[in-house]
């Protein structure tokens, strides 16, 4: 068979990639307080225990506020940058885009301490707001990457047709361009939401006394008796993320199909 050896390798590689995620539900439903083999029976008590953790619900609420805000803000910033980078040529384009995309490669801890120094320097107290500022910084490059694909494949003649028919720039954007890239925008919202929901370092440095879900999870790792409950929480979060990402992928493909582009695959 063509590429037989490679296919075996690829499947083994996927198993390696998914190994930790597969273990997660196994331990979430395992009836033992210690996370180790051998397994000792099925239980749903760790999921039931989630209801009795007020700190967790606070963290979940905080995470929801931060992730929704970060998703909306970073996608808005992403729309501007993606539109500018695909439609216009202007001086310093590479440099400006390079700076905006920089958080993609810089270690997050550097971004986090830099923001910490700035915020405390100008006297902004740490809160969920400061976490959101950090998350927008981290999420925007991903949003731009997704949206650029959507804007890239946009046919310029549709826009010109709209001008010829007498619409102004704002109405053209609202009536022609926006509906065409809408699937890309939804995809970006879902992905940036997922990234923000999972982001730990920024929240760890910038949350002050508040806590988001990853910060809560990290603090619970110190207590061995709390870990099975965290496995249950993790299972729910993974199911949620995979669902959101599947929707995002669906919209991303629909967006590219709608604007007539060729799907090169992948988010980046």
């Amino acid at each position: 068979m063509k590429g037989g050896g490679f296919k075996i390798y690829a499947v083994v590689y996927l198993i390696f990639l998914y190994a930790p995620i597969v273990l997660l539900p196994i331990f979430a439903f395992n009836n033992a307080a210690i996370i180790a083999f051998p397994l000792s029976g099925f239980t749903t008590k760790w999921f039931a225990a989630l209801w009795g953790e007020p700190a967790l619900w606070d963290a979940a609420k905080n995470s929801l506020i931060v992730s929704v805000s970060a998703a909306i803000l970073s996608t808005t910033l992403g729309v501007f940058a993606a539109r500018a980078s695909t439609r216009y040529n202007f001086p310093g384009k590479t440099g400006i885009l390079g700076m905006i995309m920089l958080p993609l490669v810089l270690p997050e801890i550097i971004l986090a301490v830099a923001l910490l120094v700035l915020l405390l320097g100008i006297g902004i107290p740490l809160s969920l707001f400061t976490v959101t500022l950090g998350h927008v910084l981290v999420c925007t490059p991903f949003s731009i990457a997704i949206l650029s694909a959507a804007f890239q494949s946009l046919d310029k003649s549709l826009e010109e047709a709209s001008y010829d028919l007498g619409e102004n720039a704002v109405m053209t954007f609202g009536l022609v361009i926006l509906p065409l890239v809408m699937p890309g925008i939804i995809s970006s919202l879902l992905i940036t939401f997922t990234i923000s929901l999972d982001e730990f370092i920024m929240a760890f440095f910038l949350a002050g006394t508040e806590s988001t879900l990853p910060v809560y999870i990290f603090s619970q790792f110190r207590f061995p008796q709390a870990v099975p409950v965290i496995m249950a929480l993790g299972t729910i979060l993974v199911v949620l993320s995979v669902t959101l990402l599947s929707f995002a992928e669906y919209f991303r493909r629909r967006g590219i199909a709608r604007t007539g582009g060729k799907d090169t695959g992948g988010f980046l």
């Binding site: 940058a81 700076m99 905006i100 958080p103 550097i110």
Partner: peptide, 26 residues
């Protein structure tokens, strides 16, 4: 060029304030 710069300015200003300035500050 002006349209392009205008279009990218919100994102560029955000990145300047939240990235370039803090990095300079540390």
């Amino acid at each position: 060029a002006v349209n392009g710069l205008k279009m990218i300015s919100p994102t560029a200003i955000y990145a300047t304030l939240m990235l370039a300035v803090p990095l300079g500050l540390i």
